[in-house]
Simulated scan of single mutants.
Amino acid sequence: MRSIADLLLLENLADVNCQGAEYGNVLQVASWMGNKDMVQLFLEHNADVNAQGGKYGNALQAACWRVQRDIVLLLLEHKADVNAQGGEYGNAPQAASWTGNRGIVQLLLEHNADVNAQGGKYGNALPAACWRAHKDVVLLLLECKADVNAQGGEYGNALQAASWTGDWGIVQLRLKHKADVNAQGGEYWNALQAASWSCNMDIVHLLLDHKADVNAQGGYYGNALQAASYKENKDIVQLLLEHQADVNAQGGAYGDALQAASERGNRDVVQILLAHKQDIDRSMHLL
């Protein structure tokens, strides 16, 4: 039974589909809040279930992000477009994957959600799930033919997102499913640079074992060695140098690894890099 306040609201609402404010429209607000009765009421008064706008793009994406399963079901019953694009997360499957609710992700897929739909902060559903380390959702998406090498979003691809987060199991899973260890794109350009910046030693080891290019250039820090030097992680710096990282490589925000380490004032890393430079200079002199 609906309250008098609910009914008065609708009587005085000039347009149930009026757009504006952070959540775009009243249906998106009610979906985000988890108020099923209000969602039902708006729908009965001809609210556009697929109205676009606001932070979450549409009501379905808002309900998915807030893990409101009952409202997701209700919206789908009213023909919500499961693949509608827009909002911070690009689409409902990406929002649901980010939250890690396997049941809602499964529900969307059963309603023909495009597992590889592009857009939003993370590019698609798989990197969103990887970034949040939701292994059960990652497995579900892979079972539904998610493209492990799809490019896009802040982290470039799923492997880079998982490497930045530091979940060894998900990185291993990505590699078993033929993820391109040297795929380029995103803020950190590749998985090795992301793992080096995040100081994830085990993942750096794993990526190097799978033939990650230690000298791949690109991204904010230019290469993995510069990223590790800036983050003052002498163990990763040493490991990268042992795998033939070029101590003189140019590029990135700090020009080279030595400048990055100097910027942070880390004496240990500076000494490691200088010693390596001297070894290279001696070798070149002998040649």
Rank of each mutant, 00 (worst) to 15 (best):
M1K: 13
Q193E: 14
Y23I: 14
R282E: 12
A194K: 02
R2E: 15
D235V: 08
L139D: 14
A161Q: 10
R69H: 11
R132K: 13
I280E: 06
G252R: 07
L240C: 10
Q94A: 11
H111Y: 07
N182G: 06
I104Q: 05
A21E: 12
E187L: 03
N58P: 11
K234I: 12
T165V: 04
G251Y: 01
D48Q: 03
S198L: 07
I272Y: 00
N112S: 14
Q278V: 13
K211A: 09
G34Y: 00
L107E: 12
A30W: 00
G53A: 09
K176E: 15
V72R: 02
A228Y: 11
E154H: 09
V115R: 05
H177Q: 09
A133W: 02
L141P: 06
V72T: 12
W189T: 09
A162G: 05
V269C: 01
Q94W: 05
L206T: 12
Y221W: 14
L273V: 06
V105Q: 02
L126Q: 03
L27E: 13
A5P: 08
D37M: 11
L140A: 13
K176F: 03
G53C: 08
V105A: 06
V181S: 01
N200V: 05
D256I: 06
L287C: 13
A51V: 07
A150P: 10
Q271P: 04
D202P: 07
K135W: 03
I280Y: 00
D202Q: 07
G222T: 15
D256R: 00
G152I: 07
V237K: 00
A183V: 06
R2S: 15
L7Q: 13
G186R: 01
L207W: 09
V82P: 10
D6P: 14
A59N: 04
Q151G: 02
G185D: 04
L239G: 05
D202G: 12
A195V: 08
P93G: 01
G153V: 09
A216P: 11
Q271F: 06
M33F: 08
V138L: 09
I236A: 08
H205W: 09
H243Y: 10
A59T: 05
D246S: 05
I104V: 14
W164C: 12
M33A: 10
L286Y: 05
I203E: 02
V115Y: 02
N91Y: 01
R282K: 04
D147L: 12
N248C: 01
H177M: 08
A113N: 06
A162N: 10
R102K: 15
A92L: 05
M201G: 08
E187N: 03
D37N: 15
A113M: 01
H45L: 10
L73Q: 15
A224L: 11
Q118Y: 01
A227Q: 10
W164D: 07
L241I: 14
L27C: 08
N35F: 05
S283L: 10
Q68M: 01
D180S: 04
A84S: 12
G255N: 09
N157D: 05
H276V: 00
G218E: 11
